[in-house]
């Protein structure tokens, strides 16, 4: 029984596995983002990629600890649009972060354990801040969202 007394961990583990799949995709996506940015502008992408690698590793460890089979990365991913310029790269990074926000919001929705909700909250705010930065770099308006992920 989970600590909220109502739901099992199965739903939560499924949501965490979906978040892991999102983190695998984010790590891959930031590789594309970095490659499309001039060398002097890659620091933010590198930092974000490191964050997603860390989250990926934490999720793999957590799911393995629970006896669940962690999702593996896909052999390849298709870009949602061509990434041919720094602006395209920023748009892709915003898309990656929006995807992560949605996945982690699903964790909040399905979490049985308070610790998992805490992890999701730790991730969500930082991801939206990164998304605001990338939307700004991409020239998108508005750069903020009232309800990211919903």
């Amino acid at each position: 029984m989970a600590d909220d007394g109502t739901t099992s961990l199965a739903d939560e583990n499924t949501a965490l596995d979906e978040a892991l799949a999102a983190e695998h995709a984010a790590v891959w996506g930031y590789g594309v983002v970095g490659a499309a940015l001039p060398p002097g502008e890659r620091a933010a992408a590198a930092a974000a990629e490191a964050v997603h690698r860390d989250l990926r590793d934490r999720l793999i460890a957590l799911l393995a600890e629970r006896g669940a089979e962690p999702a593996l990365p896909e052999a390849g991913y298709a870009l949602p649009f061509p990434v041919l310029s720094p602006v395209d790269a920023a748009s892709l990074a915003a898309t990656v972060e929006e995807g992560g926000v949605a996945a982690w919001l699903r964790v909040l929705d399905r979490a049985a354990e308070r610790s998992s909700r805490a992890l999701a909250m730790e991730v969500l705010g930082a991801a939206e801040v990164r998304a605001v930065g990338w939307r700004t770099a991409a020239g998108q308006t508005p750069v903020t969202r009232a309800l990211p992920g919903l």
């Binding site: 995709a25 996506g29 052999a75 298709a78 870009l79 949602p80 898309t95 995807g99 996945a103």
Partner: peptide, 19 residues
């Protein structure tokens, strides 16, 4: 074909976003 790297409109399809 590779799975899409989804944006918001494709979140429900596959890997990245099942939300």
């Amino acid at each position: 074909s590779s799975p899409p790297l989804p944006g918001p409109r494709t979140f429900s399809r596959r890997t990245l976003l099942a939300v």
